[in-house]
């Protein structure tokens, strides 16, 4: 088990008019190799939950365990935790600070105790993984790169210290459609090669449907669903959460109204096309 969370609660601003229960008795586990999507409206507690996974806020009630690091114990090894769990925040390009792309990507590895030549090698490898041309960008200022490239640099800065789990907070926010597609393909390819366990926060249900094998839905700090995308989008009522199911699911529903029944595991464009072809090639119709 990679991550084990039990009865996690978190309250901000205790005994002030700004008091807010951000997390309310959350329990779930994440296994190695899983790709988990995290959904919830703004203020549902997603960010607070993610911050716990990196020991960025103090654990007050419940327990969080990542590999053998138990945050409910006294003085947990936070550096070890942060090396294990690579966290990409929202709009990570605004956190770049160094003079050159090279220095920025090397920041993490050096902090986690790598020697300089070693760190530079790791940085080069991470940059190539994200599709950056190392020789081309390494001596440039991160501020003069394009938005999509900056985000790649930010991801490389995390991959460079080879974390075992990747936590991504809205990795596609603010990118154009092509940038989005490239980012998602990058994450999918990283899952196959370097980091198998990924937790992604997203507001885009199409992305969740296509790239996650499990979804966790938070609402008002409570864990509402922990299920597969197919179950969530076909069996649960998402209207109270103001969530639109993925396009493929909506099309399946529309076809159903016209009497064309497709299997309820169709979640992506490719699957939809395949299912329609199958239906009309004689398999499905009565």
């Amino acid at each position: 088990m990679s991550i084990e969370i039990k009865n996690l609660s978190c309250v901000y601003g205790v005994r002030t008019p700004y008091e807010k229960k951000a997390l309310d008795n959350i329990s779930f586990t994440v296994n190695e190799g899983e790709s988990v999507g995290l959904i919830g409206m703004t203020g549902s507690g997603k960010s607070t939950l993610l911050q716990h996974l990196n020991g960025l806020i103090k654990l007050k009630s419940g327990s969080v365990k990542v590999f053998d690091i138990d945050l409910s114990k006294r003085r947990p090894d936070l550096m070890k935790l942060r090396k294990h769990v690579g966290m990409l925040f929202q709009y990570p390009e605004y956190q770049l600070f160094a003079d050159t792309v090279k220095d920025d990507i090397m920041f993490g590895p050096l902090n986690f105790g790598m020697k300089k030549p070693e760190a530079e090698e790791a940085a080069a490898r991470a940059a190539e993984l994200t599709g950056l041309n190392w020789e081309d960008v390494k001596d440039r200022s991160p501020l003069e790169l394009s938005g999509g490239q900056k985000r790649r640099v930010a991801i490389a800065g995390i991959l460079a210290y080879s974390p075992d789990i990747l936590v991504l907070d809205e990795p596609t926010a603010g990118l154009d459609p092509l940038g989005k597609k490239e980012m998602l393909d990058l994450i999918a390819s990283l899952r196959k090669t370097t980091v198998s366990t990924v937790i992604t926060v997203s507001h885009n249900m199409d992305e969740i449907a296509e790239y996650c094998d499990r979804v966790i839905v938070l609402s008002d700090g409570k864990l509402l669903y922990d299920t597969t995308p197919a179950k969530l989008f076909y069996e649960e009522d998402l209207a109270p959460l103001h969530l639109q199911p993925p396009h493929a699911v909506r099309i399946v529903r529309l076809l159903e109204n016209k009497g064309i029944r497709l299997p309820h595991d169709v979640l992506t464009e490719d699957q939809l096309v395949a299912a329609i072809k199958e239906y009309f090639s004689g398999g499905g119709h009565a």
């Binding site: 990196n54 550096m79 942060r82 090396k83 925040f89 902090n111 995390i158 210290y161």
Partner: peptide
């Protein structure tokens, strides 16, 4: 707060 957290996540002390 956000930037501090992001750099802490990258091992900043």
């Amino acid at each position: 707060d956000k930037i501090t957290m992001a750099q802490k996540a990258r091992g900043a002390k």
